[in-house]
Simulated scan of single mutants.
Amino acid sequence: MSSPMEQLYQQLILDHAKSPHGRGLADGHAAESFQVNPTCGDEVRLRVHLAGDAVERVSWEGQGCSISQASVSVMSELVSGEPVATAEELGETFRRLMHARGEGLDEESEDRLGDATAFTGVARYPARIKCALLGWSALRDALIQAGHAGTPAAPPTEEDA
């Protein structure tokens, strides 16, 4: 039986999967990235819209499981209006969450992630981590293409596969 918090997290993921934020590709983007999870076939095409050194918004289209679609929805909401550096920091924090094996992160990190902490339980299932990271990978790639990404992230490890 799942705890009330786990049920809340599951509901949040389902809500974002059913009514995704940022869905629908928009013109006027700085860069676009297409990412596929070859393990399960999930895919996302993401466009990053910049205003100076800030992520004005992201727009996207995709298909796949509720985890991948909800994750890009939550990410879209979380990074829109934020400086690029903050969006990148949030991406790194989310990656750390996915590799925390379901243990979560410190309270400050989880507060910064907001609704993205709903994916804490996903980290217990290695096959689902790629699903949750798909949209975040697309954002990182689009920021690199737009020439707005900072120091490249560490290369993927065996655990990312």
Rank of each mutant, 00 (worst) to 15 (best):
A51I: 11
R45M: 14
E88S: 04
P152C: 06
P152F: 04
A132R: 00
A87D: 03
S68A: 10
T93C: 04
W60L: 02
A127E: 15
I67H: 04
N37V: 05
R95G: 12
D160N: 12
M1K: 04
R57K: 14
A51C: 05
L78T: 08
A146V: 12
R57D: 02
V44H: 04
S2V: 10
G121E: 02
E107F: 07
D141I: 11
E103G: 15
A100C: 07
A17R: 01
C40D: 02
E77L: 01
Q35E: 15
G81C: 12
P4F: 06
N37R: 06
A87Q: 02
G41L: 05
D27L: 09
K130L: 11
Q35H: 12
H21M: 14
A146R: 03
H148T: 08
V84W: 06
D160W: 05
A123G: 12
E82N: 14
S80R: 00
I67T: 09
T117M: 11
S59F: 00
T151Q: 08
M75E: 01
E88Y: 01
A70W: 00
D160V: 05
A26C: 12
K18Y: 10
G147S: 09
S71M: 10
S73L: 01
A17K: 02
E32P: 03
R128Y: 06
A31H: 04
L46E: 04
D115T: 06
D53T: 05
K130S: 11
M75D: 00
V36D: 09
A54P: 08
Q10E: 15
A17S: 13
A153P: 11
P126S: 09
M5T: 07
L46C: 01
P38R: 02
H16Q: 05
E103P: 10
D111M: 14
A127R: 15
H21I: 08
S66R: 07
M5V: 13
T157R: 13
V48L: 07
A17T: 06
P152T: 06
P126Q: 03
L50N: 07
L14A: 15
S80E: 05
H49Y: 09
A100Y: 02
A26N: 14
Y125I: 15
E6W: 01
W60E: 00
R140N: 11
R101Y: 08
I129D: 00
H148G: 04
A138C: 10
A154Y: 10
V72Q: 03
Q7P: 03
W136T: 00
E103Y: 04
P156H: 02
E103L: 13
Q10M: 10
W136F: 08
L78F: 01
R95W: 11
S3E: 03
R101P: 02
L134P: 00
M98N: 03
M1T: 04
F94R: 03
D160T: 05
A51M: 09
E88A: 02
E107W: 09
A149S: 09
D27Q: 12
H99G: 13
E77V: 01
A17V: 07
Q145P: 09
G91H: 03
T120K: 15
G91K: 01
K18C: 10
T93K: 01
